[in-house]
């Protein structure tokens, strides 16, 4: 299997270790990644708010790049996945949209045809590779209690994205179980992390995060597992700010799923992945992983 890899701006520039973990695990399942000259997906919230046309055209260009190489796109960020998938839906269901976009793409020597599909690493692992295959590769089970957060933009709209059930998502939990983890049921599991309003009203954003994390800590998990770099940053950096704003005491490590997968599979150099985590990982299960209590914040 070969995919055009779409790490997205946030992962490539702020969460490099998560990107690294994806690039580490895929060859183990026979997947090859190709890098193309993608722009930002573009981010569904900000860019689309300004101009729907601009948003859909950027997305059309990105997809057209992959189509030119006859490749499907593998996304790693929920936001990118949503943006590209919704834009593709627009382009595929509204011929006038597609025509308009193609007029612009022609100037770049590109054409949107609608032949490439877009899948997220979540889907690659659960739907394409499967829990059993993953389970079989685990050499170092991680018996920790986790709460999972699939992310709004992987779940909704369910009819178009079809990643998991929008109200009762279970697939990420199953992926965690495959690594020996104990995923806990918690309230507000499908609630937003708050990232969406950070740019317009950061206080509100952290108030949302506080609600979400209050529900999470109720079941006393060891860590949060996510599948989106934006959610990752919100949970990880956001909990410190939330603690400051609302006098809360959140201190939950956050993982991008493939980091845990890489560790559980016993791949080399996984300590480099965890080095940049900002909430210390004080779990015995990770004791032989080199810890760097780095306060350095990638910005």
């Amino acid at each position: 299997m070969k995919y055009a890899f779409f790490p997205g701006c946030t992962m490539a520039n702020r969460l490099q270790f998560a990107e690294k973990s994806v690039r580490m695990i895929v060859p183990e399942f026979g997947v090859e990644l190709v890098d193309l000259a993608f722009t930002c997906c573009p981010e569904p919230n900000a860019v689309r708010s300004l101009s729907e046309d601009t948003w859909v055209t950027f997305a059309a260009r990105n997809i057209a790049l992959a189509e030119a190489e006859n490749l499907d796109i593998l996304t790693a960020c929920a936001g990118c996945h949503e943006s590209l998938t919704l834009a593709k839906h627009e382009l595929d269901t509204k011929p006038e949209r597609k025509e308009k976009a193609n007029e612009i793409l022609k100037g770049m020597g590109l054409e949107y045809k609608g032949t490439s599909s877009i899948i997220h690493v979540h889907q690659l692992l659960f739907d394409e590779i499967g829990v059993e295959t993953i389970s079989a590769k685990v050499v170092r089970p991680l018996p920790i209690k986790v709460v999972t957060h699939s992310g709004c933009h992987l779940l909704r709209p369910q009819k178009i994205l079809q990643v998991d059930d929008a109200e009762v998502p279970v697939k990420l939990d199953m992926l965690c179980e495959a690594l020996g983890m104990d995923p806990l049921e918690y309230m507000d599991k499908v609630m937003c992390c708050g990232a969406g309003v950070r740019k317009t009203d950061s206080d509100t954003s952290y108030a949302v995060l506080k609600e979400k994390m209050t529900s999470m800590v109720m079941v006393e998990p060891d860590a949060i597992v996510v599948f989106c770099p934006t959610c990752f940053i919100t949970f990880e950096s956001g909990q410190r700010i939330t603690n400051r704003l609302f006098k809360t005491e959140f201190k939950l490590p956050v993982f991008y799923y493939t980091e845990l997968l890489a560790i559980a599979m016993g791949l080399p150099d996984t300590d480099a992945l965890l080095a940049d985590h900002r909430v210390k990982i004080e779990l015995p299960e990770f004791s032989d992983t080199k810890k760097e209590d780095s306060e350095s914040i990638p910005t």
């Binding site: 806990l184 049921e185 918690y186 309230m187 507000d188 529900s215 109720m218 079941v219």
Partner: peptide, 9 residues
């Protein structure tokens, strides 16, 4: 009613 959530304990 928009949603119902269960308190874990």
């Amino acid at each position: 009613v928009g949603e119902i959530q269960q308190y874990p304990k």
